[in-house]
Design a protein around this nucleic acid. Structure first.
Length: 442
DNA sequence: AGCACA
């Protein structure tokens, strides 16, 4: 018998197989479409679609080799290429002799979907956003999320396979709508298969899992650490484990973000007790500690996704830290405990949080000279349209807090001193020249 | 537009 030597280079001389390999298929090509395509040439006994990294390849297996040959021969000499939905698809014999395992468990329709959230910021997609996305197709019973090697995944349970299928068909391969995400979050694509589960076991309401059929389920003990508290919403809003400590990561950091800049920005919402900065994943992150959760919540909602500098520079991503009290060992340009008087500081600040403890912070603060303000414009920047991705007038989408900056001033009037830079620091240029960050005044 | 990981 003729040995089939594998020679990937010479695809044109691929030996015949009753399995055909198709590529350049339109997105989400269905098995039905593949059958339609192959049917004129013979009996399609198996298919496999959504193959390859782009999921635009597929296999068709004919009952008989001659049928596959007929199809290849036909299109080899046809003036019309093979098409699916008007898109040219390219055919060749597969280098395999049969389709293995097309109908796996992952393809058996069920009421539970396995959702993989892909994207740089997949982990930032909240369970609430997922709930919102999937609720469009029917009542979502439960959601669990977890991290696997495959990335950030979720199991989404519907009442029945039909609902799950409609959600899968509509959402698989699609991105989470921009307006549901902070503008700073990179696009997140959903890859969906069926799960073999039929009923998820959700023991607690937490930021990792929800049971929407039982809103009175206890809140996860792990989510109630220390002073953090959960505002449990039945509608699936705001169930993150809030904390008085925020984790800030800064994206697109074209301009240096110093401790003082962070202090100023975050002081707009209340007293900042401690800040710790560190490098992570090639970027910079910081932990910002407020005395209470409420202040942190306000700050997070106001600042999330916003840029410290105009032009999309230094975008803030905020999440709640699991810390409740930072341990600041030493006050330096990376970490600071503002609650203890620092002998190195000319001005201990008993009263004013908004006070800039920067008098001695020469080097860092001095990086902020006029030329670094904005990209070429000496203009102070406010996060103009802080949320380009939100509030785009999309109907039916809950416009939650972050968008409504109008009634949500960055700088509460009740905190005098905060960010009153001009003249406020009596001839302390560094502070005054710090961040071109401004409350969004509208 | 170029071969599947259940």
């Amino acid at each position: 018998m003729a040995s089939v030597s594998s020679q990937p280079q010479f695809r044109y001389t691929q030996p015949p197989s009753k399995v055909l390999h198709l590529r350049n298929l339109p997105w989400e090509c269905t098995e039905e479409e593949l059958i339609e395509l192959g049917k004129p040439f013979g009996k399609v006994v198996n298919t496999k679609c959504n193959v390859g990294a782009n999921r635009n390849q597929a296999f068709i297996e004919f009952a008989d080799l001659n049928q596959a040959i007929a199809m290849i021969s036909y299109y080899a000499s046809s003036s019309e290429p093979a098409q699916v939905r008007g898109k040219t698809v390219y055919l060749q014999y597969s280098n395999r002799q049969e389709i293995v395992n097309n109908k796996t468990t992952a393809d058996v329709a069920g009421n539970v979907l396995l959702v993989t959230i892909e994207g740089q910021d997949a982990r930032l997609v909240s369970i609430d956003v997922l709930h919102l996305v999937f609720s469009a197709f029917g009542f979502v019973h439960k959601i669990t999320t977890f991290e696997k090697t495959a990335g950030f995944q979720a199991l989404v349970q519907f009442s029945d396979a039909e609902t799950a299928t409609s959600a899968k068909n509509s959402l698989d391969g699609r991105s989470i709508p921009r307006y549901l995400l902070s503008e700073s979050i990179a696009p997140c694509t959903l890859k969906i298969t069926y799960s073999a589960h039929t009923d998820l076991s959700v023991k607690f309401q937490s930021h990792r899992s929800r049971d929407y059929t039982n809103p009175y389920l206890p809140v996860a003990p792990s989510a109630i650490d220390g002073s953090s508290q959960l505002s449990v919403g039945l509608d699936g809003k705001k169930l993150e484990p809030e904390s008085n400590v925020l984790l800030a990561s800064i994206e697109n950091m074209q301009y240096a973000v110093t401790l003082d800049v962070l202090h100023m920005v975050f002081s707009a919402f209340g007293p900042v007790q401690k800040i710790a900065m560190f490098d992570k994943n090639g970027g910079m992150q910081a932990l910002i500690q407020y005395p209470d959760v409420q202040t942190a919540v306000v700050a997070k909602e106001a600042l999330e996704g916003h840029c410290i500098y105009d032009g999309g520079f230094c975008k803030l991503h905020l999440s709640y830290s699991r810390h409740t009290d930072l341990s600041i060992k030493v006050n330096n340009d990376r970490s600071r405990d503002y609650t203890v008087p620092n002998p190195a500081m000319a001005n201990p600040q008993p009263s004013g949080f908004g006070q800039q403890p920067v008098q001695t912070m020469g080097p860092a603060a001095h990086q902020y000279n006029g030329t670094q303000y904005g990209p070429g414009s000496g203009q102070p920047m406010m996060p103009h349209q802080p949320s380009a991705g939100w509030g785009s007038g999309v109907p039916g989408v809950p416009q939650s807090t972050p968008v409504q900056m109008t009634n949500h001033p960055y700088m509460p009037q009740t905190t005098p001193g905060t960010m009153q830079m001009p003249g406020g620091y009596g001839g302390v240029p560094p502070a005054g020249s710090v961040p071109p960050y401004r409350p969004n005044q509208m």
